[in-house]
Design a protein around this nucleic acid. Structure first.
Length: 586
DNA sequence: GCCGTTTTCGGCCCGACTGTTTTCAGTCG
């Protein structure tokens, strides 16, 4: 684990433990905010002096001192003190949906519950009923929430959540009187994993919509069933067989006039919304999910008193009324976007006109060279590169030198009208940083994508050297999925990303955003660092079959989360510009 | 614990829903 992650982890733990011991909520929020600053920090915190630490959002003198402690010792005195006082098992109890710090604290102090197992026992022997405000219904809900947490497991990956959300919207769109329907939440912000799905609707007959929602196939539990809000739990079939994943889906029906305010509110992020409401307040306004209103300090909310909002119908009108330009959902994370005079023109799916990382039946793909090229052509691309695996990837039928030479001939012979087919390889970066083919063979290829596939548990300094060596190689164009992580499965390499980015700029190499929803590698925070430094980015689908081209949406979303604009993305370039860049390395 | 174009102290976003109560505490987003 890198230092930044370690700092973020320690501060998050501090926040959780503080909640459990009854610290005031503003102090808890301060720890959470500082933790987020280090989560998204792309320089190594160890390289920052006191002054630089203080410049981070949400870091003051006391926090900086604690951070320096963590860097030196892995912990800090206040955290150690709280760890001594608080059972470690309570953190997992806190993760059960519906159980907050107050309740966990109560069952801990009155019953001595110190872990999830203790909690289950207290339900079984009914001792939990002696805790204040603990009625039969609450106990029943806790029991169900424990089961749900066990079966839901990790957050759902974007590539599984997005199709499910589309399916839900499709079903609801058939209900009479539905006028608007949109996914909100972290799905709309394009996060790599999703906690629960939020669907927002406008409908003439909210009751019918809500009923249809709760009656959908796949719903196995209804949590709430009202006119404006309904919640269900449903299963996502596992594409590889085995146990289904479960996810909570919320439907909210809102008034048409408040659509923009509601969409903004339910899209989040929470931190972004908090900042917006603070900003509104400073301007003598108040912002809620019904609109932006004049702040008259009345207790009753303005919309209930018939006060006319300054803005509410569209998100753009609300941002404008606050003196801001429209913010694309992907950057609404309170990581500096609210300081912008104008939001950048972010990369879009339609900007992508080439694919430089694709496999055929020669290694582990299912398409022939021609089929691949035709599919790419149908997506409006001017160029497709055929980059099958290199020889070390034996499980993927990686190509020996001889087979690659034959393959090059076959690729050159293939013709599909209207698209350039380039020869290439996704060549393994060996653990020592050498490549899997000799230079004279690599020099024959139009495109070289160098990727790490194994030995992915190397120490950070070794991983950095390994990847730097590949970047410095004069024949390499692109470094594919640079960390090799698999979301929710494998952490992958943790190289010093800033060094890689600096080297990539120096050696005119593009770093890949691999679009597969299990990878999304580079991840959003890495992209942000690359964008700030001005590095080239390749957004590629790592195509193995035709539907893989659709993963482009996830890669583009990841780019947008990193504030990526089209100019530095090689896949947006014209054919001439792209081919000139490739040839410059030959 | 952070922060300052009203403030170096005294604020720190807003509302819905649920379940427990009988006027509200806790959780969530």
């Amino acid at each position: 684990m890198g230092l930044n992650a370690q700092i973020a982890g320690a501060l998050t733990e501090m926040a959780r433990l503080s909640e459990l011991t009854g610290a005031d909520s503003f102090r808890v929020r301060a720890y959470q905010r500082a933790a987020r600053a280090f989560e998204s920090l792309t320089t190594d915190a160890g390289d920052l002096d006191r002054q630089a630490l203080l410049e981070l959002d949400g870091v003051g003198h006391k926090m900086a001192e604690k951070v320096e402690h963590i860097a030196a010792t892995g912990t800090f005195p206040e955290l150690d003190e709280l760890r001594d006082k608080t059972p470690a098992g309570l953190i997992e109890v806190l993760r059960i949906p519906g159980l907050g710090p107050k309740t966990v604290r109560a069952i801990w102090q009155t019953l001595g519950v110190e872990s999830l197992d203790d909690l289950k026992k207290s339900i079984d022997d009914e001792s939990i009923a002696t805790v204040p405000r603990m009625g039969a219904k609450t106990i029943e809900n806790i029991a169900r929430a424990i089961d749900f947490a066990a079966s839901a497991g990790d957050r759902t990956r974007l590539g599984l959540a997005a199709p499910l959300a589309a399916l839900v919207r499709e079903r609801l769109a058939d209900v009479a009187g539905v006028k608007r329907l949109e996914s909100a939440g972290s799905l709309r912000r394009g996060k790599e994993t999703i906690g629960d799905l939020d669907i927002l609707a406008v409908c003439d007959d909210p009751a019918a919509l809500s009923q249809a929602f709760c009656d959908m196939p796949g719903v196995d539990e209804v949590l709430a069933h009202g006119e404006t809000k309904s919640s269900v739990r449903m299963s996502i079939p596992n594409p590889r067989g085995g146990a289904d994943a479960r996810i909570q889906v919320d439907l909210r029906v809102v008034p048409e006039d408040a659509w923009g305010a509601a969409l903004m509110y339910f899209t989040g992020s929470k931190e972004h919304n908090v900042r917006l409401r603070e900003r509104a307040k400073k301007q003598g306004l108040t912002l809620n999910e019904y609109g932006l209103f004049p702040d008259d300090n009345e207790k009753e909310p303005p919309q209930k008193r018939g006060v006319k909002p300054k803005a509410s119908k569209t998100e753009e009108s609300i941002y404008n009324a606050l003196g801001l330009s429209y913010m694309p959902p992907e950057i609404r994370e309170d990581t500096g976007e609210l300081d912008l005079d104008r939001a950048p023109r972010l990369i879009e799916v339609d900007d992508i006109v080439s694919e430089l990382h694709a496999h055929t039946t020669a290694s582990d793909g299912v398409l022939s060279i021609e089929e691949l090229a035709k599919e790419a052509k149908s997506r409006g691309f001017h160029t497709i590169a055929v980059t099958d695996h290199s020889k070390s990837q034996q499980v993927a039928h990686g190509l020996s030198e001889e087979r690659l030479r034959e393959h090059i001939k076959a690729i050159r012979a293939a013709k599909v009208a209207g698209i350039s087919i380039l020869t290439g390889s996704e060549v393994d970066i060996m653990p020592d940083g050498n490549l899997d083919y000799d230079d004279d063979l690599l020099a024959e290829l139009d495109v070289v994508v160098a990727s790490p596939h194994w030995s992915l548990q190397q120490k950070p300094d070794k991983a950095t050297k390994r990847l730097l060596k590949a970047i410095e190689h004069p024949l390499v164009h692109i470094v594919g999925h640079p960390t090799g992580r698999l979301i929710n499965k494998r952490g992958g390499l943790e190289p010093a990303m800033n060094e890689l980015i600096a080297a990539a700029i120096e050696h005119n190499v593009a770093l890949e955003i691999n679009c597969h929803w299990m990878r999304l590698d580079l991840r959003d925070t890495h992209v942000r660092a690359a964008v700030e430094a001005g590095a080239l980015i390749a957004i590629d689908c790592d195509v193995h079959s035709a539907p893989d081209f659709d993963n482009i949406a996830y890669g583009v979303a990841t780019g947008r989360r990193g504030w990526l604009t089209p100019e530095n993305v090689v896949n947006t370039w014209t054919k001439k510009k792209l081919h000139d860049w490739l040839k410059a390395k030959r």
